[in-house]
């Protein structure tokens, strides 16, 4: 067990602080954009509409997407061979390189979930600020609940009772995390692998789930689920080098 955990060290050293940095940066940018557009609100409106409008106008989901792409780029770093051939060492360890790739995928998933959690915490903070800043008669004790139910981006961050979206987010994190570990694994063995780029773009586009339809959520579930299965199979069976 200790040996398995120790293979995470080289990856963790390169990613944890960077991912936390990007997460905080993305959350900070969202706070700034939100406050800018919230300040320009129509004071007569309801609190929930003011919040939804500020999230939409500030394009917070785009900032989230940019942050997500950056995090994915960071997660690829440990496996890349930049000026060194760490693959020679990885292939001589007590832990099979394929198991190591899957473990790194697990760590990446955890870091992506942390990224998600930090963005959610920022969104919750913004919503609370919004309701405190608005006159009491424009909202009530259920406004926070409505804000996360009616704003597509906030709903994707904190889907509450919407389990398919929760599952989609978790599967999306796992698919991105695994592909960020699988991409350099395949590169080290002389193969091309661009699944990560495709999945990251899809995840970014699909994330602010439209509320009216479950199509995008279903698509996401299907795509991420299939991607995880394919990636695990591909890592497991294609071990030999292409010379």
């Amino acid at each position: 067990m200790k040996r398995w955990l120790s293979v995470l060290t080289p990856a963790a050293r390169l990613t944890v602080w960077k991912v936390l940095g990007v997460s905080l940066l993305a959350a900070g940018a969202q706070v700034l954009l939100f406050l800018t557009f919230f300040g320009r609100r129509d004071s007569a409106g309801a609190a929930v509409s003011a919040l939804t409008e500020a999230v939409r106008a500030g394009r917070l989901s785009l900032v989230f997407g940019a942050g997500l792409l950056l995090v994915c780029a960071v997660l690829v770093l440990p496996g890349l061979e930049r000026g060194v051939k760490t693959g020679y060492t990885l292939r001589r360890l007590g832990v099979d390189e394929r198991v190591l790739t899957l473990l790194w995928g697990g760590l990446n998933t955890l870091l992506l979930l942390i990224f998600w959690a930090i963005q959610t915490a920022a969104a919750l903070g913004l919503a609370r600020y919004c309701f405190q800043a608005m006159p009491e008669e424009t909202g009530n004790h259920q406004s926070l609940f409505f804000a996360f139910a009616l704003t597509p981006y906030f709903h994707a961050l904190l889907p509450l009772w919407d389990w398919p979206v929760v599952l989609r987010n978790v599967l999306g994190s796992a698919a991105l995390g695994l592909s960020a570990a699988a991409l350099p694994f395949h590169w080290r063995h002389g193969r091309k692998a661009w699944t990560l780029l495709f999945l990251a773009v899809v995840a970014t586009v699909l994330f602010p789930a439209p509320l009216e339809t479950s199509v995008s959520c279903g698509m996401g579930l299907l795509l991420f689920g299939a991607a995880i299965a394919l990636m695990v199979c591909n890592v497991w069976r294609r071990y030999d080098d292409e010379d």
């Binding site: 040996r3 120790s6 293979v7 060290t9 050293r13 000026g83 060194v84 051939k85 760490t86 007590g94």
Partner: peptide, 21 residues
């Protein structure tokens, strides 16, 4: 071509190698 982990310290390499070898 070098096969160490550039981001790790020498001490971290020692711990890592001790675990695997």
């Amino acid at each position: 071509e070098h096969s160490y982990f550039p981001a790790l310290t020498a001490g971290a390499h020692r711990d890592f190698y001790q675990e695997h070898f």
